[in-house]
Design a protein around this nucleic acid. Structure first.
Lengths: 380, 380
DNA sequence: CCTTCACATGAATCGACCT
DNA sequence: AAGGTCGATTCATGTGAAG
């Protein structure tokens, strides 16, 4: 995989080799097209690889040598091995273009997902969740010989085990789920009706078109507006259409002319949502940090003020330097809160209270006031 | 494992070395104990192998209590390679004792299930279904860093690709599911309360005891009365207890003295059902909860839609992630409803309305529509 | 006796930032 | 690079005491 062979494809400017690679569909095989993209440049990858082991087309080993097409004459072991080689090849190429804190989503069924999951673990990806897409209207099992196959499986993984700063819009997901945290099982209908793209004959244009709602949940949970979403098995461009609508960039890779044509047309027709609608519900983690000392400095809390816990079991006094004291013991609101309770840790903002008339108010309320004043002083 | 060593057995006489092997717990390592059983003698295998959990340090709840995690020695493996070797060893030994038309069930989480699935495919097992156990009461994700891990995965496989005469009680499953085919996603609570076995100190006797309802569905779906159910990771004997109650034979393999003792006692106390018709107690069929976001995702409410209260005093608009916004303030329909009224809580479903012509319609009506569309899903 | 509240707990790969 | 500090974070259910 020599870098020398990398050339600009579908390039609209002449200058930089990688310029203008966003919001485009690259036509070609996913492994070779991935090799042309700049390294560590993509925030999220969504991949819907072939499920079937009887692949008609090209299979590449990790060294890019070609595997002969799988047919029924091949024994089982060989065909699994061929699928694994194909899987590891694209997973490896995808990992190169993923940012260190980027994440990968793969969808599959029991035919392939166990092989995909094991392969990505072998390559160093670190699984964050497996997520189940429960289909509200799955196809029945016609022969009555098995359970109705009513779900597909998604794997969500970070590039590395130690990557801790991946994007997960926890608060947005929680708010979207009636204020309880989003679970690993999601219910969506399959893609049908007017959403399902048809060709001239009225037949479905693509055999495995995914519902836009599924892609929306994926993109909203694990990316921010302006991020780049890559789909190496683009098909008719569901990922691109949803990414564009949600204010993200997309990159699609697809081999078939016809799918590329349909996807382009589809995405061109998409109207992006406004920034207002797209802003992500942010939790406390995203808010600016306000040290307790600055509340004292700004006069929101006077030195000497008495602090107590909600049940008035413990008392402390505010000192001019922003520490608080119990007896001779002085330290931060967190340290002292932990110490009086005999705990290792404590969030002093929610533990300590000030008197307001007969009632108590957590000092976290004062922090909110301080933050509001900061907003006025220095608007973003 | 050479084919030459396999002999026709299934011995019914006293002389044979394998006589009297049913309804017993074999104490020892699963691979060596499996080797002592007659070949092709077991109808169903249920296996709950170690999950290979990779825990960091301690995990604290928001209230600072410590989570009692699985850190037992039997769940520690050096590497993926070591885990794979262990997995293939027991899967191979298990395959020898399985009848040609017997089936295997394995349960796992994302930590191990992809490796187990790929391994069993490599060994010649043929996957019939993957089944998702949706937990009605899973442990939360305490740090808000991922989706709540709310399910585990089961794989159901036949011994060979060509085995067509495995047992699947299609009609019984359909009858147990309100006369529609049983789906591949099952809803059960985790094992707790009086069903959870405790030791002398009142602590849980086994860290990963499975609910009997889960085993009952497995056994009822894929075996007949009188069949032999083998569990190579017997633990405290849930498989044996349920098999006995349902009129099946069991064989358990377990290493730990203490688990063997508890399991024996437990199974001895089980009274087999005499009823010809064995039915699972129908699970709860509560109304499915519909998050507001799913209305946006499904297109029932467009992003940007204006919401008002019944008297049109307050206005909010819908965002793409299913939160709603008033000015810069965005959160769930409930939170924003509470905030504009200056209340602590609010039922957003009845508070907020959308325009329908000149009139207003509570969004609760839209929820009803969404539920009706979802009824097809028929939760277990 | 009923309601309410406090508390316990379950297969978990569960930070970010500054010095 | 390692270490210290700040400070964010939970849902369903069962049990048992309190009112």
């Amino acid at each position: 995989m020599s870098m020398k062979r990398i050339r600009p494809v579908l390039v609209h400017t002449q200058e930089a080799p990688h310029s203008g690679w966003k919001d485009k569909i690259l036509q070609g095989h996913c492994v070779s097209e991935l090799a042309k993209l700049p390294p560590a440049s993509v925030d999220v990858i969504f991949a819907d690889p072939p499920y079937n082991l009887q692949l008609g087309g090209d299979l590449l080993r990790p060294d890019h040598s070609r595997v002969d097409a799988v047919d029924d004459a091949w024994d089982q072991f060989e065909s699994f091995e061929a699928y694994d080689a194909f899987t590891k090849a694209w997973l490896l190429a995808a990992r190169r273009v993923l940012k260190p804190n980027g994440t990968l989503w793969v969808i599959g069924s029991y035919h392939n997902i166990f092989r995909v999951g094991a392969s990505l673990q072998d390559l160093g990806y670190w699984i964050l969740n497996d997520v189940v897409w429960r289909k509200s209207n799955p196809m029945p099992n016609f022969r009555g010989r098995r359970f109705q196959n009513a779900h597909e499986t998604l794997i969500w993984a970070s590039r590395d085990k130690d990557a801790k700063s991946y994007t997960f819009n926890y608060e947005a997901m929680k708010a979207a789920n009636d204020d309880v945290q989003m679970r690993s099982d999601w219910l969506f209908p399959i893609c049908s009706g007017s959403e399902r793209l048809k060709d001239e004959d009225g037949c479905k244009a693509h055999p495995t078109q995914k519902p836009e709602a599924l892609l929306a949940r994926i993109i909203l949970s694990s990316s921010k507006p302006g991020d780049v979403i890559l789909d190496p098995f683009f098909g008719t461009g569901t990922t691109g259409a949803v990414a564009k609508r949600l204010g993200r960039h997309f990159v699609g890779i697809e081999r078939e002319d016809e799918y590329v044509r349909i996807a382009k047309e589809r995405i061109d027709a998409v109207e992006p949502l406004t920034d207002e609608v797209l802003r992500i519900a942010a939790g406390k983690r995203a808010e600016p940090r306000v040290p307790f000392a600055s509340l004292v400095e700004s006069g929101l809390v006077a030195p000497g003020t008495e602090l107590t816990d909600a049940k008035r079991r413990y008392r402390a006094y505010v000192r001019a330097d922003g520490t608080i004291a119990v007896g001779d013991d002085a330290a931060s609101i967190h340290r002292i809160g932990a110490r009086v309770q005999g705990l290792d840790a404590c969030n002093g903002w929610t533990f300590w209270h000030v008197k307001r008339g007969k009632d108590l108010m957590p000092i976290d309320e004062l922090r909110r006031t301080a933050r509001e004043r900061m907003q006025v002083a220095a608007p973003a």
